[in-house]
Amino acid sequence: MSALLQVRGLGRRYGQRIGCEDVSFDLHPGELLCIVGESGSGKSTLLNTVAAQQAPSSGSVRYRQRGGGWLELGALGEADRRRLAREEWGFVTQNPRDGLRLNVSAGANVAERLMALGMRNYSQLRGIARGWLERVEIDPARIDDAPTSFSGGMQQRLQIARTLVTQPRLVFMDEPTAGLDVSVQARILDLLRRLVNELGLAAVMVTHDLAVARLLAARTLVMQGGRVVETGLTDQILDDPQHPYTQLLVSSVLTT
């Protein structure tokens, strides 16, 4: 099976400082890849660069379109980049308040991407929004409530619904469960795993939590100081870490 996303020698510098350097990986359809590493290791820089939200300083990212042709993201114009982000990709931010439109209702948040794609039937939009609220375990009766009246966990689930409503092929997630308490995290992880399986999404997820990687990802990248130090199957990396930094990461997880 051919890859959905090809990252080759990708680097991003902020002046003299290195954000990330010489990163290469393939992502296949239906696959969830986790990027782990401590804070400041370049995870988010890598994610934003792969998602074409920042221009790379070196290297390339190629994306395979629905038609099968390869798209060089570095050569993409603003219009095409936005079309891709709107029609084929999704991005879930760590802080749901960054990804949501807070001054409009939950229903409008879910329906926004559909309207951007040209859907112009109110009752249809409403029906889909209701269905998605139910799918992310938010009471559909709250469809007209403002997201500011939701709890942190609900806001994050709303953001997930808003992102997945257009059935993107590829989703980028930046620490979607950080900042939530453990039981809420568990529900969101369950939800994500279910949705990723149901929709056959490919996803790249950044996390500092190895348990999240273990639960969701088949493959994991370990980053340190902007470089990928180890990559492989998640279980393999967590049970038999080779690189000293990975060993340190794994051994520093609290066990009961």
Binding site: E78, A79, R82, R86, R101, V104, S105, G107, A108, A111, E112, R113, M115, A116, L117, G118, R120, Y122, L125, R126, I143, D144
Partner: peptide, 22 residues
């Protein structure tokens, strides 16, 4: 200005949606 340049006007319907919802 970018939204005008790209004729990306889905946002305007968010406002009309909110009207009907409310």
């Amino acid at each position: 200005r970018t939204l005008h340049a790209l004729a990306d006007y889905g946002l305007m319907h968010v406002k009309l949606y909110e009207d009907i919802a409310q």
